[in-house]
Every structure is written in structure tokens, then in C-alpha cells.
Computed example of a mutant assay.
Amino acid sequence: MKIAYCLASSGEKRCSAFEVDHISKSTLSHHVKMLREAGIIQPRIEGKQHFYSLRKDDLNTRFPGLVDMILHTGDLE
């Protein structure tokens, strides 16, 4: 949820720029892989850099209100 919130609230980011605390790089990479394979985030590769963004339009089409809920949940923390 924190990765999705980070991307929903601020747009495209490199994996190293996600604002998640106390998570090892390998765990973060695993979660990014799961979100990518599930179709929730999409990668954009530029040279050696991988940038990720939330597939907002696709998610809003398939699950109306989900992105708004993610953003609202992050505001409660």
C-alpha cells in the first residue's frame, strides 16, 4: 500500500526513491515485482534506470474509486 500511495500521490519514481521505511532493498524489489506482475504499476526503462508509475487510468476503469481510496488511506497515517 505504501508503494501504491507513494506513486499515486507523486507520480513516476525510481525504485530507490520510494518513501518506505524499514524495508530492505530485496524486499522492496520483491514487492515492486509483485505489483508490476499484477498490473498495478508499470515500468519505464531509461538506460540503466527503471522508473515506475501507478496505472491510474487502468485501475480507475477496472476498479472505480480505488486510487482515491489509496490516497485517502495514506492521509490517515
Rank of each mutant, 00 (worst) to 15 (best):
L28M: 14
F63K: 00
E12K: 06
C6R: 06
H50M: 07
R44H: 10
D57K: 10
N60Q: 14
S16Y: 08
H22D: 10
V32M: 14
R44T: 10
D21Y: 08
E19H: 11
L59R: 01
H22G: 05
L59Y: 01
D58V: 07
A8N: 05
R36F: 12
R55F: 01
I40L: 15
H31T: 13
L76P: 04
L7H: 03
E12L: 05
D68L: 00
M34P: 04
M69Y: 07
P64S: 01
G11L: 05
K25S: 08
M34W: 11
E12Q: 10
F18K: 09
P43W: 03
Q49R: 14
E77R: 15
S16Q: 11
Y5L: 10
S24R: 10
T27Y: 08
Y5G: 05
I23K: 15
I70H: 00
E77Q: 11
D68A: 01
R14K: 14
L35Y: 13
H72N: 10
S53E: 07
H72Y: 09
G47D: 02
S53F: 13
K33R: 14
S24N: 02
T73K: 12
L66H: 00
D75H: 09
K2M: 13
P43G: 09
L76V: 06
H50L: 07
Y5C: 08
Y52M: 02
G65Q: 02
K48Y: 09
C15H: 08
K56I: 10
K56D: 13
I23E: 10
